[in-house]
């Protein structure tokens, strides 16, 4: 029985930038020890994000009206949107857990176990971080670590419109095809339901107790003040 506890919160649909602000605020609070490890679960409106290593040309043909954000995480280009479960774990990695690859593999394990509950056999591919079903990618991972506190996380396609991935070269892998829980035959799964399953598996994989906290509590902790950054032109 671990003394560690992780607070899980379902935030619903949140714009990318405020969500990033919340993460940064929570990460600062986590570093200072003001809060426990926290797992934010949410869904974004349509958005493309580019990791630090990402080349702009991986955004091939963005549909009009979909904003593009460049963010300080590893990984390449990805899409977020309705029907996709996004998880942002704000964890302080300590002791043996201070291993970046171990953390990435644990996130994959969480998703793989959760998909197994839905009867979907998913796995890993060598050197291609993420979770795959056959040759298709069902979940993307990209994390940032600041003073051993984690930011960003994973995105699991539940029943999102996969055509939005056509506008990009996901993760910089040419010809990378995407899938979703719905595409794999479980069109009865909702994003909020997947969030419960993920929270449950996350606690199991990371060996901690999970408890749910209210979204309002998260917003209270994170008086998100994401400065000005215009994304025009």
């Amino acid at each position: 029985m671990s003394a560690r506890s992780i607070a899980c919160a379902w935030l619903g649909r949140v714009d990318y930038r405020p969500a990033l602000g919340v993460q940064e605020e929570l990460a600062a609070a986590r570093q200072s020890g003001a809060i426990d490890d926290t797992l934010l679960l949410l869904e974004h409106p349509h958005v493309y994000t580019l990791g630090r290593g990402a080349a702009e040309h991986f955004v091939v043909a963005p549909p009009p009206g979909v904003p593009i954000h460049r963010v300080s995480r590893g990984g390449q280009v990805t899409y977020h949107g309705p029907g996709q479960l996004v998880g942002y774990p704000i964890l302080k990695l300590e002791g043996a857990a201070r291993d970046v690859h171990l953390y990435l593999r644990s996130l994959e394990e969480t998703i793989i176990q959760s998909l197994r509950q839905y009867g979907i056999q998913a796995g890993r591919r060598a050197k291609l971080t993420g979770v795959w079903v056959g040759g298709r990618k069902i979940a993307s991972i990209g994390v940032g670590i600041r003073r051993w506190t984690t930011l960003h996380g994973f995105a699991l396609n539940v029943n999102c419109d996969l055509s939005f991935f056509d506008g990009i070269v996901p993760c910089g892998i040419d010809g990378c095809r995407m899938t979703s829980i719905a595409r794999e035959g479980r069109d009865d799964v909702e994003v909020a339901g997947a969030a419960r399953s993920i929270a449950d598996r996350f606690a199991a994989v990371f060996g901690c107790d999970s408890r749910w906290i209210d979204a309002a509590e998260v917003w209270r902790i994170a008086r998100a003040d994401s400065g000005l950054e215009a994304d025009c032109g």
């Binding site: 990791g51 300080s72 971080t129 990209g142 994390v143 600041r146």
Partner: peptide
């Protein structure tokens, strides 16, 4: 900022 795999670290 150092990147390994899909993680980027300060």
């Amino acid at each position: 900022e150092v990147e390994t795999d899909k993680a980027d670290m300060i």
